[in-house]
């Protein structure tokens, strides 16, 4: 299954800037990025290996394709590539409900949903959410986010920033809100991949921290889910294998993206020694690694 990340948000929220940085980024992943229009995509000509109408292939292994009103067809094209991509990113149109686009991640054969990232233009989001034409559309977009990036915060004063953060917390009550500028956010947060245990710094507002948890002990399913639900909002991503007390045969996969998490059946342990191994990424200052480890330990049987 290829993971799918949906990037949503209204016009001017910074989706294109983020997509440009994903395409050119040093993340070591072969991404397939599906966009509505090449028009605004700005790819360094030296990086372009081939351009055949609705697909641009980059020398770093990434491809960018246009959706042209038929997302299913575009996904099938990507899935049929000689070497399928490691990860698919779908840009939702400015008036689309990203939750609807996420259905393709959940339901299209060969794909699984990684997460829904919604961008909001810090300077304009409140006006947009009250607009006579698109107000409701924008509110739906905010509500669809697993992780909400409040972009263009460099244009705001500290007080403005605070007020829009407070407003967003009420508007999109579940999702994790991260202030940022120029969509500058570590790829590990966006795509949840390559999460190596290091502290990652991203300018200018947030600093991210990684927490690693390992134990050979089995965890109690109910208790684990209850603990996760009590974690602070600063936890943005978590991923790894879990040894559950109620299933000695299989590993289970925990995946957390912002406000949403799921625990699904993984591979059988076979020769491997069963052990839980999780990587958590969060906003520094909003998470405490000792507390999180203690929380996980208390779910052990």
């Amino acid at each position: 299954m290829i993971p799918v990340t949906v990037i949503g948000g209204y016009l001017g929220a910074g989706k294109t800037t983020m997509i440009n940085s994903l395409l050119a980024g040093d993340h070591g992943l072969r991404l397939a990025v599906l966009v509505n229009d090449f028009g605004a995509i700005n790819i360094d000509a030296r990086l372009i290996a081939a351009h055949d109408g609705d697909t641009i292939s980059l020398s770093n292994g990434c491809v960018c394709c246009t959706i042209a009103d038929a997302l299913g067809e575009a996904l099938d094209k990507v899935l049929a590539m000689a070497v399928p991509p490691d990860h698919i990113v779908i840009e939702a149109s400015g008036v689309a409900n990203p939750a609807k686009i996420a259905m393709y991640g959940r339901g299209w054969p060969g794909l699984c949903l990684d997460g829904v990232i919604v961008l909001a233009d810090g300077d304009n989001i409140q006006a947009q959410a009250a607009d006579k034409f698109v107000g409701h559309t924008v509110q739906l977009q905010l509500a669809a986010a697993d992780i909400l990036l409040l972009n263009k915060t460099d244009l705001l004063t500290g007080a403005q920033n605070q007020s829009v953060m407070t407003w967003l917390a009420a508007e999109a009550s579940d999702s994790r809100v991260i202030p940022t500028s120029f969509g500058a956010i570590p790829f590990t947060i966006l795509l949840g991949a390559g999460g190596l245990p290091q502290t990652i710094h991203a300018e200018p507002h947030a600093t991210y921290q990684t927490v690693v948890f390992r134990t050979p002990r089995a965890l109690d399913r109910e208790r684990l889910l209850a603990r996760i639900a009590s974690w602070p909002r600063g936890v943005l991503r978590a991923k790894g294998l879990v040894r559950l007390g109620d299933d000695p045969v299989h590993a289970h996969v925990l995946q957390l993206v912002g406000c949403r998490h799921e625990l699904s059946l993984g591979p059988a342990w076979r020769e491997e020694v069963p052990a839980t191994q999780l990587v958590l990424i969060g906003i520094e200052g909003q998470i405490d690694s000792d507390c999180l480890r203690a929380s996980l330990l208390s779910a052990c049987i």
Partner: peptide, 20 residues
Amino acid sequence: ERHPQVNMAEGRFFETGLSL
């Protein structure tokens, strides 16, 4: 069965399930 907008038991495809 996996698709959230397909109801296989009822043989029903709706919204994004239609594209499937």
